[in-house]
């Protein structure tokens, strides 16, 4: 396919699809609750509205608060460029080699900035959210690293593009894919770890951190969250697709279609899960994330035995 065309599709995908996915998740969630729900394009309307509103910043806030969303969004964009969340074949060849550890640490950089910004305003909610976010990422990051390392061991490379271009052992793919789904629920502040739509700040994690943001700052954060949603769900979807041995042999356009469809399906699954699960007690979160850790460890064991 033409290199320019690929780049075009890639960039459109990058700029439009994340918000679309968030819209779909919200719509399905509304349907689950017997509501009609906002249109799927609502996140776009929200974003353009936020960009046109006055931004209010706390008097206690410093440059950390101001620059955190800018750098955070830039980091999320770069990470989204690097990660083959919609499959590897449509990745243009100007995208540099992507080490999975670089991706995990780039995501950590974004979280580090968000947590600092949360504390910056001197609000108790910010500190509470940051503290919980730090705890959750402490529980999730080892799982992510071990799980993807198990895939990397099978592919013989730490480059994400190489990992996802090669066939995988189906068992490892299923285990790591499921671990990534559970990890994604925690990292994206979704039910049952965190409730993104609650009205009580004390029960929130991510929303408590960004409580002080408004207008443009909030718009950038919302977009970064949408990108992160795509990155995590996309990685999980790609890994699960690799459990189907014929997947890597399919024609290019077909694979792209399946990737996008599976990403949407996974988003819908997350929405359904939000509809039927209750939020876990904060103290039970480690037990829930232990499932992901165990699946990752099993995958690592199988990968280590199969090499």
């Amino acid at each position: 396919m033409n290199a320019w065309l690929i780049t075009l599709i890639y960039l459109i995908n990058l700029l439009i699809f994340p918000l679309f996915l968030v819209g779909i998740i919200r719509k399905v969630k509304a349907l689950m609750q017997n509501r009609k729900g906002a249109p799927v394009l609502q996140p776009f309307y929200d974003l353009s509205k936020l960009l046109r509103k006055t931004e209010t910043i706390s008097g206690s806030a410093s440059w950390v608060f101001v620059w955190s969303p800018r750098v955070g969004l830039a980091v999320a964009l770069i990470t989204a460029v690097l990660v083959p969340w919609a499959g590897t074949l449509l990745t243009p060849n100007w995208v540099p080699a992507t080490n999975f550890l670089l991706v995990i640490y780039l995501l950590a950089l974004g979280k580090f900035l968000t947590m600092l910004a949360a504390i910056d305003t001197g609000s108790a909610f910010g500190g509470l959210g940051a503290s919980r976010e730090a705890t959750i990422s402490m529980l999730v990051e080892p799982t992510l690293v071990i799980g993807i390392a198990a895939l990397a061991l099978g592919a013989g490379s730490t480059n994400l593009l190489t990992i996802y271009a090669a066939p995988m052992s189906p068992l490892v793919a299923i285990l790591v894919g499921s671990a990534l789904v559970v990890a994604a629920l925690a990292e994206l502040s979704r039910m049952p770890v965190d409730d993104p739509t609650t009205h009580l700040e004390l029960t929130m994690v991510h929303e408590a951190m960004i409580l002080e943001y408004s207008g443009r700052g909030l718009a950038m954060i919302e977009y970064a969250v949408a990108l992160r949603t795509c990155i995590f769900l996309g990685l999980a979807a790609q890994t699960l697709l690799h459990a189907w041995p014929a997947y890597t042999a399919l024609p290019v356009t077909f694979r792209y279609g399946i990737s996008i469809l599976s990403l949407i399906a996974l988003g819908k699954a997350v929405a359904v899960a939000e509809g039927i699960f209750v939020k876990l007690k904060w103290r039970s979160v480690p037990n829930f994330l232990a499932f992901a850790a165990v699946m990752s460890l099993l995958a690592a064991l199988i990968a280590a035995a199969q090499i």
């Binding site: 206690s60 410093s62 950390v64 995990i104 640490y105 950590a108 979280k111 580090f112 947590m115 600092l116 504390i119 910056d120 305003t121 001197g122 500190g127 940051a130 503290s131 730090a134 705890t135 990422s137 402490m138 990051e141 080892p142 799982t143 992510l144 690293v145 071990i146 390392a149 198990a150 061991l153 990752s296 460890l297 690592a300 990968a303 280590a304």
Partner: peptide
């Protein structure tokens, strides 16, 4: 592979610790 996870755990704990240090000393 476990050592990789171990290093990731240590890294995440270090992030928690330094968010605490920077946040409590310099921010707010």
């Amino acid at each position: 592979l476990l050592l990789m996870g171990w290093l990731a755990l240590i890294g995440a704990l270090a992030i928690a610790c330094f968010v605490k240090a920077v946040g409590v000393v310099f921010l707010g």
